[in-house]
Design a protein around this nucleic acid. Structure first.
Length: 822
DNA sequence: TTATGTTTAGAAAGAG
DNA sequence: CTCTTTCTAAACATAA
């Protein structure tokens, strides 16, 4: 690379000289340019992430996610039904050039749809009105869904619609496929959903397509690949819209618009059906219960694990809880790679939610909506930097501390001595399991929660319990520390209330007692932990989503930044929202849910998850991990407690919690359900330190990143935090394919700037290290650098390349993930 | 019937 | 080579 390379003097150099700029300047400017470009135009033909290419090149690293494992094998067994999704791969559309066009079309179609639906449908969700959008979606959804499985009825209802869908899908179907193409269904249907035309599109690229016949995967793969190819995001959420909307995710009704039932019709046939609904329109983004990261979204498959994606999604909501649908929506928007049609990933998402300890189920009233999946504050560490690391789960830690086996959410294994048992069917009553014996073993997730807690009325406990008690009192903070909030959440606009709030909260983190109570809730939900980061999440000022909550918050917060009170209100609100409404149902869950607020709580240890299973499996890992990130904060517990103290006290009842108590591992009551671990008293090691936050509202250093700097905090973090360990590349065929397809092994240029600030700026930027935008000056520069090689590198301001990132392969950078965030 | 959840299996990749 | 992790697939459950 470094070599002198042929062109001794690049035009650029000349130009620079003439201009009097240094390379550094160029870099900076380029970054800025890039930034603009990216923002403004998503359209870059494709942002390829160099990283991707590189990654691929690199090795496997990416995830294997794509992999289609066994695919090959399948041949034999072509299951009847799903023999294979594979089909799919069609050459499809070339890249989408049309993004803009498509976008427009889409919108139009959507609007039309909306209108129609609005009329037609009832469902529109009540609440806010966002619904309309939904309706619009319906088409899409339907298209998609249909594609996949459903029948065609609609088939194409409209070409336009189809188009829209396609677009949305990101796929270019349009091109290739006529809008309607009923066929889709065939394909899709046959094969699970997966590949709707959209995928095909992709093929345009090279995608060789994966040969892999495997079923769905292939399809999926292909799809993905396609998606990947398309980098441009169809909808980049851009703008601040995001910020705005905080619909109350929690707010039951609305939940995600998409989610809205309307979609239902569409249902998929697939086993695990996917879902359906179309994504929300951009317009609707505002309304969403979660915050979308800015930036164009890369269509590539994220390197992140599903757990990480879920974590990002959930954490993007003010309360840190989303419904499954919302999670789907978030993922599909932010990672266009995942399309609604595909059942595979959704199935995986569900699977992860069910099996991962950190994802807590919060039941709600039906009236409110479906259950929500929450991340407690105590587990925030797990999601730092947008990644997911079990090790940091409170339970894990505890377990580690205890030396017990890592908890698993689902004990299934444990329970039964042998795995395999198929489940006996469930018993209707969970009781059986829970009740009895199993305690250790199984508890349904929901139960778990319940188990843990003594059941306090939801409302009560929310405040009361900190989610994860023990460890983090101030989960957010801690987390924040660990995570760069920014990473997770885009920086808030100064103006935004949230910012203040959050900060305030953070500050208050200590949480005022008063707030404390509420706080717990608050914290949970929006609290902010995300200090810095959060803000955005919550955006809105009044907006919406849980609007009320938010709104209030704002007011309050605004006024007093600090106080929790603001929070408190929020909390209250939140709770109301959640609890009040949902709560009833929640009784069980509550325990866990409350989490968010963990802050307040003192040290409860949590053991909740443990209950599920203490499974030995991971121990190793868990053990290793124990301490979350040391880096940031020192002692979490102590601090936390102090700060949070307020509420902690009563860890009320939570059965589970008690044990946790941090320090003592006392075994407390065992919740019947709980896992033994909990009982055992895993204590929690506080690990994380919140301290930092206590002191500082802002996230630790890394968090902030200036574009200018070029340094991507994330990067740092990543390095630190992330263990590159596995690099799983996506090897799995898909990924590779996808990637390769798009960009062939392109030489991994090291272009990848660490996405330094520039691109980086957009936190959520495409995952890859950055988008490859040919137009982007940055690119040019990069090339130049490449030519110049080391020289440039040296020169390059640290900022840009930060640590030499310049040349690092994207992968190296950290998992692309980080990058992406920034 | 659908969407959602839970659980079991198995494959692939990586780490040790 | 073994163990672990992640992903995928699918069966089964259940609420609405």
């Amino acid at each position: 690379m470094a070599e002198p390379v042929a062109k001794p003097v690049s035009p650029i150099s000349q130009v620079l000289q003439s201009i009097g700029l240094t390379r550094d300047d160029l870099v900076r400017h380029s970054d800025q340019m890039r930034f603009f470009l990216t923002q403004h135009e998503l359209g870059a033909p494709f942002s390829v992430d160099p990283s991707e290419t590189a990654s691929t090149a690199r090795g496997s690293s990416r995830t294997r996610s794509l992999s289609r494992p066994s695919a090959p094998a399948h041949p034999q067994t072509p299951p009847p039904s799903t023999p294979v999704k594979s089909e799919p791969i069609e050459p499809a559309m070339p890249l989408r050039q049309m993004d803009s066009m498509e976008m427009i079309l889409e919108r139009k179609s959507r609007q039309a749809k909306r209108e129609k639906k609005a009329k037609a449908k009832d469902r529109p969700r009540p609440p806010p009105s966002p619904s309309p959008a939904h309706t619009s979606f319906s088409l899409d959804a339907f298209m998609q869904s249909r594609d996949s499985r459903r029948v065609p009825d609609s088939d194409q209802s409209d070409s336009s619609s189809s188009v829209a869908l396609q677009v949305r899908l990101s796929v270019p179907q349009n091109n290739s496929v006529p809008p309607v193409t009923p066929q889709h269904r065939k394909y899709y249907r046959d094969y699970d959903s997966i590949e709707p035309p959209s995928r095909h599109k992709k093929t345009s690229f090279a995608r060789p397509l994966s040969p892999t016949p495997t079923r769905s995967r292939t399809a999926s793969t292909s799809a993905r690949a396609q998606s990947a190819s398309q980098d441009a995001d169809p909808f980049t959420p851009r703008r601040n819209n995001y910020y705005k909307s905080p619909l109350p995710s929690s707010s039951p009704p609305r939940s995600s618009p998409f989610a809205t039932p309307s979609m239902k019709r569409i249902v998929n046939l697939v086993s695990s059906p996917g879902p359906m609904g179309p994504l929300p329109d951009q317009d609707e983004y505002d309304k969403l219960p979660y915050k979308l990261p800015p930036g164009p979204y890369s269509k590539k498959r994220p390197e992140l694990s599903y757990a990480a994606l879920i974590g990002q999604a959930i954490l993007s909501s003010p309360e840190h809880r989303l419904t499954l649908q919302e999670i789907y929506d978030w993922i599909t928007i932010v990672y266009p790679y995942f399309q609604r049609n595909e059942a595979t990933w959704m199935n995986s998402i569900r699977h992860v939610l069910s099996t991962t300890v950190c994802f807590r189920k919060v039941p709600r009233d039906r009236s409110l909506g479906r259950t929500q999946w929450a991340i407690w504050d105590c587990d925030l560490d797990c999601f730092a930097n947008g990644n997911f690391r079990k090790e940091f789960c409170a339970e894990y830690r505890q377990a580690a501390a205890a030396k017990k086996p890592p908890p698993k959410k689902r004990p299934a294994e444990e329970a039964a001595s042998g795995r395999k048992m198929k489940r006996p069917k469930k018993e209707p009553a969970s009781s059986t399991e829970t009740g009895s014996p199993a305690m250790p073993t199984l508890a349904p997730a929901s139960l778990q929660g319940a188990m843990l807690l003594p059941i306090v009325p939801a409302t009560h406990f929310l405040p009361i319990f900190p989610p994860c008690p023990s460890v983090h009192h101030q989960p957010y903070y801690e987390q924040c520390t660990q995570l760069p909030a920014e990473v997770i959440f885009p920086p808030l606009p100064p103006t935004s209330h949230y910012a203040r709030v959050t900060s305030g909260v953070a500050v208050g983190s200590s949480l005022p007692p008063s707030s404390a109570v509420k706080n717990s809730d608050v914290s949970q939900t929006s609290p902010a932990p995300p200090s810095s980061s959060l803000p955005e999440l919550i955006p809105n000022n009044g907006s919406s989503s849980s609007p009320q909550l938010l709104s209030e918050d704002h007011s309050q917060t605004d006024t007093a930044d600090v106080y929790i009170e603001s929070a408190s209100p929020d909390v209250t609100l939140l709770e109301d929202a959640r609890i009040g409404k949902g709560k009833k149902a929640e009784s069980v869950v509550p325990h866990k849910t409350p989490p968010r607020k963990s802050r307040t709580l003192p040290p409860m240890p949590l053991s909740p998850t443990l209950d599920r299973r203490t499974r030995p499996k991971k121990k190793p890992a868990s053990q290793q991990l124990p301490p979350p990130l040391p880096a940031l904060v020192p002692e979490p517990t102590s601090i936390a407690t102090t700060t949070t103290q307020p509420r902690p006290l009563t860890p009320p009842a939570r059965p589970s919690t008690p044990p946790r108590n941090r320090g003592a591992t006392s075994t407390v009551q065992l919740s019947p359900i709980r896992t033994p671990l909990s009982h055992k008293g895993l204590h929690m090691t506080p690990n994380t330190s919140l301290a930092h936050f206590k002191t500082h509202l802002d996230p630790p250093p890394h968090t902030t990143f200036n574009p200018d700097d070029g340094i991507n905090p994330a990067v740092f973090d990543t390095e630190n935090v992330r263990t590159p360990s596995r690099k799983r590349p996506y090897h799995r065929d898909r990924d590779r394919d996808a990637v390769s397809a798009h960009f062939p092994p392109v030489t991994p240029k090291k272009l990848v700037f660490p996405a330094p600030g520039s691109t980086a700026e957009s936190p959520f930027r495409t995952p890859g290290p950055r988008i490859f935008d040919p137009h982007d000056p940055g690119t040019l520069l990069e090339e130049e650098f490449a030519r110049l090689g080391a020289k440039a590198a040296q020169e390059s301001p640290a900022g840009l390349y930060g640590r030499g990132l310049l040349y690092e392969s994207p992968n190296a950078l950290s998992p692309g993930k980080l990058t992406r965030w920034y």
